[in-house]
Design a protein around this nucleic acid. Structure first.
Lengths: 354, 354
DNA sequence: ATGTAGGCGCTACGCCGACAA
DNA sequence: TTGTCGGCGTAGCGCCTACAT
C-alpha cells in the first residue's frame, strides 16, 4: 500500500476526464459489450434503464411511482456523444451517452440504418488470467501462463541467468505499475515478483478476480482488471432515494422526448447479469414495450485467446441495453421464441434465422 | 487489515438496516446537526436539496432543466419517519426521512408549532481527538489525552505494573474493536497499543481525522470517526446523470405535493460546508423562495468538552436544511441581516434578537 | 501533558526451489 | 504446464523509553 501517490488523482474527482484508453476499456468490459457509434440511431428503453438502476441500487421499483403517459416504452434517439469512464475506486468501467430523441414523426417513420454498434474491438495481443489463491496470497508473486508471457511481454534476454526484466504497465487511470518479470524455478516458469503485491492490495484483488495485460501497437503495456461476480456491494448512493432516481430517469427521458432535446445516461455493463431467460411483459406499466429482460452473460473461463469472440448482437438483438441498432446483418445464435412479437418494422425473415 | 470478518456485513448491502446507536450517530454528526422529531412539521426546500445534491455530485445544476411551476419553493411537510444511517465504506453519517406535504389549503394556513428539532443530544461522557502524525503512523499506537482517558475509560488497576486493560468498543455498524489500554512511559501516559493500527488501516484514517470515544449509560464503549474536510472524493454515482438526479428530486417533491403522498429524501450533514455568507436569491428559477444559501460549519478544534455546544438553530434559523421547525425559542448568535425578508408568518421581533 | 524519534525484538512479507497435479 | 508448499532472509511493524516542547 505504498503507492498512494499513484493511487490518487485529483483530476479524477468528478469522474474520469482524460481520454481513457479505448482498447483497455473494451478489454475490461469484455467481448459482449460494444458501444454504438456516435451519430448512429439507437433505441432507448426507459424500462430497461429503470431495471438497471434498480439492480444497481438493490431496490425494486416502487409501485406508487407515477407513470409518464407521454413517455413511450422505447425512444429512437440519435447518439450524440459517448465517453468511456472507469470508477476511481473500483476500476469498474461504464459509459456516458448523450441521446436526442427523434421528433414524434421521425419516431414513427424511423428506419434504423443497418449499422452495427462498433463491433467490440477486443485487442489482439493480450491475455487474461483468473487469479489463483497463490497469485493473491502475500506468500508469493504472480504466475504468468507461459504462452501468455511469450506473446504479450517483451522477450527476455536468455543470456542472463536467470532472465529477468522490469515491466511497466498502465491502468485505466493512467497510473503506472512496475513489476519484476523473471523466468526461473524448476521447471522454469514466468513470474511477476516485486511490485505484484502492491498492485494486488491497491486494487483489492482476491482469488477469482482476473487481470488483463495488453501489448498494443504503440508497444505500450496496458493493465486492466475484471472483478469476479461477487454479491454486488453497491450501496444506495445515499444522495437520492431510489424512487427519486427512477422518477428522474423517466422525467429526463420524457422531457427530452417532449422538447427534442438531449439527455444523458450512464451505461453500466456490469449490471447485465447472466442469461436467465425471457421475462414476461409488464402490460400495466409498460404496454406495448418491446423491451425483454433477457439477461446475457459470458463465461469468464472462456476469456483469453482460446474462445472465438462473440458480439452481444449476435446472441440476442433484443437484449441490447440500452442500444438497439438494426439487427439486419446479424445472425441469432438461437431462434427467436415463437409467439413473441418481433420488433416493429422487422420481419422474422429478415433476421436470417436458420 | 486482518479484521475482514468484522469489516464486512452482508446485511449492510442495501444500507444500514439495524437500529443505529443514536447517541453515536449524533456524536459523529457533530453538535450542529440535529434531527426534527417524527410527527413534527418541517419545511422542505427543493432548492436547498438541489444544492446539496449538486455539492455531493460536484456538478452544478444545468440551466436547461425544466422548472416545475406546480412545485412551490418551500413545502410544509409532516415528518413521518427518520432513520439514521452510516455509509458502509466511509462511516459517513446520513439520515433518511419520509415527508408528506400538507394539502394546499394547509400549506397556506400552516402554523408551525413551536417545536424544536430534538436538540442535538451530544453524549455527556465522551471525548474527541484529532489524530496526530504519530497516532496514524505505523510506528506506534494512539496517545490518549489524560483527562479524556480518566473520564471516559474504565479506571485502571494501578496495583499492576504497568496498569493495563483490554478495551472493547463498538462502531456505528456494531463492529467490535479491541484495544490494549496501557498507562506507561516517562512521564506516564495513557496509550492504546495492540489493536489500534488495525483500526486505523481498516477505517483508512489519516492525520487530521478525528476519533470519538463514548462511555454511555449502559457502560458500553462506543467508537466513531469524523474525517477531516478533505477535498470531497465524491464520485458521480455513475448510475444516474446529475441532470436526472435533479429532475428526480423535483419530480418526487412535485408528485408528492400534487397527490399529498409521501416521498423520501436523504439528509447528508457532511455537505453543509463552512460559513461563506448569504447568497443571492435566484429570482428566475426559485421566485419567492425563502431558502438562503447560508453555509455553516463548526471548527473541529473546538470539539470535545472544552467548547460549549451550540445548536444549528441557534446560529441561523434559515440555514436549516432541509428541516425548518419553528424558531420561536431560539436566539440568534448574530442579528438577521437587515433588508432581507424574514420567513412568512414570523416577525423579526419573535426571533428574540438583542 | 503529549508529540516525535531512537532502539530493537519479532512477525509476516516475499523470493527461492521442491514437489505434485 | 502451473498451483501450492516448506525453506529462509529481511523489511518494517509495533512496543518500549528518552527527550523536547
Amino acid at each position: 500500500m505504498r503507492l498512494s501517490s499513484a493511487g490518487f488523482n485529483p483530476q479524477a474527482q468528478e469522474g474520469e476526464k482524460r481520454v481513457l484508453n479505448s482498447e483497455l476499456w473494451h478489454a475490461c468490459a469484455g467481448p459482449l459489450v460494444s458501444l454504438p457509434a456516435v451519430g448512429s440511431r439507437v433505441v432507448y428503453f426507459p424500462q430497461g434503464h429503470s431495471e438497471q438502476v434498480a439492480a444497481s441500487t438493490n431496490k425494486e421499483v416502487d409501485a406508487h411511482i407515477p407513470n409518464y403517459p407521454s413517455l413511450p416504452p422505447q425512444l429512437i434517439c440519435q447518439l450524440h456523444n459517448v465517453t468511456m469512464h472507469a470508477d476511481v475506486e473500483t476500476d469498474e468501467v461504464y459509459a456516458q451517452m448523450t441521446l436526442q430523441p427523434l421528433s414524434p414523426q421521425e419516431q414513427k417513420d424511423a428506419y434504423l440504418p443497418a449499422e452495427l454498434g462498433t463491433p467490440s474491438k477486443q485487442p489482439t495481443n493480450y491475455f487474461c488470467k483468473t487469479l489463483t489463491a497463490s497469485d493473491t496470497s502475500t506468500h508469493g508473486g504472480f504466475s504468468v501462463p507461459r504462452r501468455a508471457a511469450e506473446k504479450v511481454f517483451p522477450p527476455l534476454d536468455f543470456s542472463q541467468q536467470p532472465p529477468a526484466q522490469e515491466l511497466i504497465a498502465r491502468d485505466l487511470h493512467d497510473n503506472e505499475w512496475k513489476f519484476r518479470h523473471i523466468f526461473r524455478g524448476q521447471p522454469k516458469r514466468h513470474l511477476l515478483t516485486t511490485g505484484w503485491s502492491v498492485f494486488v492490495s491497491a486494487k483489492r484483488l482476491v482469488a477469482g478476480d482476473s487481470v488483463l495485460f495488453i501489448w498494443n501497437e504503440k508497444n505500450q503495456l496496458l493493465l486492466g482488471i475484471r472483478r469476479a461476480n461477487r454479491p454486488q456491494t453497491v450501496m444506495p448512493s445515499s444522495v437520492l432515494s431510489s424512487d427519486s432516481m427512477h422518477l428522474g430517469l423517466l422525467a429526463a427521458a420524457a422531457h427530452a422526448a417532449a422538447t427534442n432535446s438531449r439527455f444523458t445516461i450512464f451505461y453500466n455493463p456490469s449490471y447485465m447479469g447472466t442469461i436467465t431467460g425471457i421475462s414476461d411483459l409488464d402490460p400495466v406499466r409498460w404496454p406495448n414495450s418491446h423491451w425483454r429482460s433477457v439477461k446475457v452473460g459470458w463465461d469468464e473461463s472462456t476469456a483469453g485467446e482460446r474462445q472465438p469472440r462473440v458480439s452481444l448482437w449476435e446472441i440476442e438483438p433484443l437484449t441490447t441495453f440500452p442500444m438497439y441498432p438494426s439487427p439486419f446483418p446479424l445472425r441469432l445464435k438461437r431462434p427467436w421464441p415463437p409467439g413473441l412479437p418481433s420488433f416493429h418494422g422487422i420481419k422474422d425473415d429478415d433476421l436470417g434465422m436458420n
